[in-house]
Design a protein around this nucleic acid. Structure first.
Lengths: 96, 96
DNA sequence: TTATTATTTAGATATTTTTCTAAATGTCTA
DNA sequence: TAGACATTTAGAAAAATATCTAAATAATAA
């Protein structure tokens, strides 16, 4: 986990689409798979990257594994982006 | 330009550090270079990716090229992330 | 218990990305 | 104008990533 993992995870369009699909609620891997034209193995790989980044959680229910969005990490990223938008002129060590 | 380019641009730690450095104000490529242990050619490559993504602007001033942060694109990304954090239960086509 | 279904793991391949060195371009200064 | 400086472009090598097929694991259903 960590910032780097989060940003890397978000840099792939398939993974962002997975997150978007999970906005509506938990979905099993197979349900997610219907929305893409990749193999189950590839999807599984993407899911593991998202999980590693802390962006999703999984819960096994019998035969299925349900994935849910975890927005905790998003907050950190949001904070970082907001801080870029603020004025930091005084922070530099060499003013012109 | 586009979402994909923006996320890809943000997925590299060197490029994020560049953005952080530019928070304090415009810097020339050479000034940025002092903060990293990569060649000028590599930095130039990173700058071109950031520029392509719309995250920075450049302005030539004689011998130097000054880079500045452009936060317009960040707003789009922020909006996308915020939307993930909202509840979208009604959006799905198959409620359980 | 055997077959079937859902998902992951392993290993290979193709593509993309990062970085480098060397050379090109443009600007300033002596 | 000749040389030095700041930066980019071109092209190559190394590392990381996305995807696939085949096999493994685990749970349910027949």
């Amino acid at each position: 986990m960590g910032f780097q993992d989060s940003f890397k995870a978000l840099s792939d369009p398939t993974r962002r689409e997975i997150l978007t699909l999970l906005r509506a609620g938990p979905l099993a891997a197979g349900e997610l798979l219907e929305h893409f034209s990749i193999t189950g193995a590839s999807l599984s790989h993407h899911l593991s990257i998202l999980k590693h980044a802390g962006l999703i959680d999984d819960e096994k229910k019998g035969k299925y594994i349900f994935y849910t969005l975890n927005t905790t990490v998003l907050d950190d990223i949001l904070r970082w982006m907001m801080s870029l938008k603020e004025n930091h002129e005084g922070d530099s060590d060499h003013e012109k």
